[in-house]
Nucleic acid binder design. Structure first.
Lengths: 237, 237
DNA sequence: CTTCATCCGTGTGTTAACGCACATAGGATG
DNA sequence: CATCCTATGTGCGTTAACACACGGATGAAG
């Protein structure tokens, strides 16, 4: 069950928070708070998108689904960005599904308001584009990582990315769920997780994973985690 | 050796060709023709980017390189788009390398001209953003494909994508080169290629691959090829 | 026409991960 | 507290792909 978390004020959306006061205040009336329960489907592949969402305490997974039903995540969005870039990039829809991976709060803005604001140009547009660029880097690195690195390395990277967007040490998710994100077998997750438990990196039981030694995860992850983080930091100040 | 190919007039850059006459004519004086030899490195990871390039008869591969030297492609750009999106998305540099995979012609535009034109908004900006969205879809599908599909499926998809951007049936590339694109062993390429030769899809010898039965490649590829193509067609008319 | 570098074929052993089957155990529910 | 559902552990056979080694062939260059 998603419990109430820290108020959004203390974990604002960083993309919005980085805007000049003028832009921020113009946008404020068009932003409505909304609550995301765990597992909520925000966008369905190829379906109409009515809002964009700026996560504050929540975070969202971008997933592709194959014809045979298997799935894999291509990106993860937390309070550093927004969900729904297709609405200003053009295209109206996207071929991926977006689902809530960490319950919490977000601000939403209607598609029409977003498109109007984007067209103004200025700092808001720049911030949206820089964020999109950082997302491209994340997706690209995921592509390469999927090809070149082991299950354990990728699991570590994924837990680190999730940890960064969760703001606390307990992740609420089953091995089954993680296997759908990483595009691997549930059993493979169990084996890798077991190994990380032995290393003292994490503990877990029945859908609750606790990060004990983040450093161990960092050492066991591939270089991809740091590459994406560095580039993200560079692009988003 | 790259031989002279059809004049660029007959294979224009489609992104540019799709613009209203007014925009096209404004841009024309800022576009300079340039020739790409096979294998030329257009951008080095994290290095300054002085121009963007609109391929006409050439095509370009976007590559990531790991610390241990292994590489994998994340995207392929032909005359449907442009190379150097980071210059208008913000960021100035990107963490990937861009290399010429098919020798030929392209138009180049200076970084400053590009940024100036982008800021005008209008149709050119819209076209650039829609293309970027289609590239995101391509990269995303590559991420998923890398995780879920076999060597042979991915090789077929890759040859189809290359074929679409090459405009003729002979691809000039060694198994070694392809292995660096797909992020796999050279031997694995040889085995898969051999199999496709037996199926009658292709013939090849010493760096020249000829596509005999495209249909066979389509049947042997994963769904990813068609997914990306459909979305590309939708976004770029 | 000989030499040489490059390109491709092929085999062998090893490993990572899959597919499947089934066991165990903790919570929830009545 | 008996039952059931869900989450995780584990084993076994199979497969895809890697790592490495080496051989043969072809085309370019002297």
């Amino acid at each position: 069950m998603p419990r109430p978390q820290e108020p959004s004020r203390s974990i604002p959306n960083r993309l919005l928070a980085g805007l000049p006061a003028e832009d921020y205040e113009r946008l404020l009336p068009r932003l409505k708070p909304t609550t995301f329960p765990l597992g909520k489907v925000i966008y369905e592949s190829q379906k109409q998108m009515d809002y964009v969402y700026f996560p504050t305490t929540s975070h969202v997974s971008l997933l592709y689904t194959m014809l045979n039903g298997s799935t894999a995540e291509v990106g993860l969005v937390g309070n550093e960005g927004l969900v729904g870039i297709a609405l200003f990039m053009g295209g109206e829809t996207t071929p991926n599904r977006a689902i809530v991976q960490g319950a919490g709060e977000a601000y939403k803005m209607s598609a029409s308001a977003m498109q109007e604001e984007f067209k103004r140009g200025g700092e808001f547009q720049l911030a949206l584009l820089r964020y999109t660029q950082s997302l491209i880097v994340q997706i690209s690195q995921t592509a390469v990582c999927n090809r070149l690195h082991t299950t354990e390395q990728r699991l570590c990277r994924w837990m680190l990315m999730t940890h960064d967007r969760t703001h606390h040490d307990e992740l609420q998710m089953t091995h089954e769920f993680i296997s759908n994100m990483l595009g691997i077998q549930r059993e493979a997750v169990s084996i890798a997780a077991h190994h990380l438990k032995e290393k003292g990196a994490i503990t877990y039981a029945r859908g609750h994973i606790k990060i004990i030694e983040r450093r161990v995860l960092e050492e066991s992850a591939c270089e991809c985690y740091q590459m994406v983080k560095d580039e993200q930091d560079r692009l988003l100040e």
